[in-house]
Design a protein around this nucleic acid. Sequence first.
RNA 1: GACCCCGUCGUCUAGCCUGGCCCAGGACGCGACCCUUUCAAGGUCGAGAUCGCGGGUUCGAAUCCCGCCGGGGUCACCA
Length: 471
Amino acid sequence: MPDAAVRVRFAPSPTGHLHVGGARTALFNWLYARHHGGTFILRIEDTDQSRSTEENIEYIVDALRWLGLDWDEGPPTRGFRQTERFDIYREHAERLVRTGGAYYCDCTPEMLEAQRKAAEARKETFRYSGHCRDRGLTAGALRLRLPEMGATVVDDMIHGPVTFEHQQLDDWILVRTDGTPTYNFCVVVDDVTMRISHVIRGNDHLSNTPKQILCYEALGYAVPAFAHVSMILGADKSRLSKRHGAASVQAFREAGIVPDALVNYLARLGWSHGDQEIFTRDDLTRLFDIKDVASSGAVFDLTKLEWLNQAYIKAMDGRGLAALAGPFIARAGLSVTFDEERRARAVETLRERAKTLVELVEVGRFYFERPASFDAKARETFFTRDGRQRLALLIGELCTKPAFEAGPLERLYRDLAERLGVKLGDLAQLTRLAVTGRTASPPLFDVLAILGRDEVVARLRAALAAIGEAA
RNA sequence: GACCCCGUCGUCUAGCCUGGCCCAGGACGCGACCCUUUCAAGGUCGAGAUCGCGGGUUCGAAUCCCGCCGGGGUCACCA
């Protein structure tokens, strides 16, 4: 049921790359918007100009695009970066001064710090005393005047009603003495002016929410609905951070995770739908409901992500997968001489053997270059005098046998094994070692067919020469 | 410290609202076996949670009530 009134936003601050926690918050917002036929907005919270960089904005935008989370409003359109909105904040601040919802305070940071220390010494929580509340000042820092009594209830879509006593809160600063607005004030003004209907964000903002709600009310605006999503945790159950290893979307991208797998994993982290594990984007937008998101934190499990990633890789068609693998092949310093069709076939033999695209290239390395060496242990068992004879025999057979396709090749090998009175494995492993340099590879006859007669024979000759050297 | 959130297999979770079908189901991972020219993939089976702890309420509690404990988050003229 489309609900055009649904307007949600993802509001990262560009002080670093996009983290998986942020990516999940973005995803939940996006899913909520798409499920309801609403609007998804991207807003850049760059009020902290010392820590925000253009480069980080690029990274975040890039990561969101890669994940396929498209926004309906936001950059590059102007007006979606906080640094472009100072006039709007000033306007709202002035309005609060006029209505008496806020007042100026000239307490110096030194004074406040002293009070904070004193409170700490008395083992109390520091709260601003309200010293300047009724002094009628016309300059200084601007503070929001909170009601002293009563409580504010955050009616959270995930947690249910959460009550905060006003006595726990204090008159917080909206605008600093130097005239710059604070983060919490910007957020309220932005959400109000962008007509955000549902604020879906990280759990770490839950404690700030009552302060913000009081600001909405002072401004005379309707309060949006809130949903506070739990945090993603590291193995030690503390909030996931760089400390726990690379956790940026960019890092997973470079590790060869495909976007659909990451989206699927992130969605399932804290959300579920019966016993289903794999969800297409259509499934997700159709089934996702913010109310079904778990309220407890979730540990990030790379192993499960990799399992999902393999499931996606496995389900992909050869051409599509080859295209995705392209950059990873290049990055490994390899080049492809195959035509597109053979490249697709090669990748198809690899796809159930790799958890990531990086692994896919590693496992299929032999397709792109001749083995630089042969597995030392296997060499001892296969590159023997018998091995030399068998290789010579195989070269002869492979040169004359007309059809170089998997079926006929297998028949050739089985016949030859029978003739020699050896097991198929003896011949197959010998060939595998000679052609790939390893003891493990995709099905041998597929590999031979894809490589082609000339290449296979050349590699067998090279192996024969290697045995010669050893003997 | 104060306030707030959270607490079911190692991990992600189902079940909790509307007590009994749950001596707790699925998935990842782990073990075994099957398949097999290797490695995977796939299939079958298995180990693994006294539902954070302690009290209640009830014929009956993972599910309702109370207390505690543990973990996390927030408390800036940071975002």
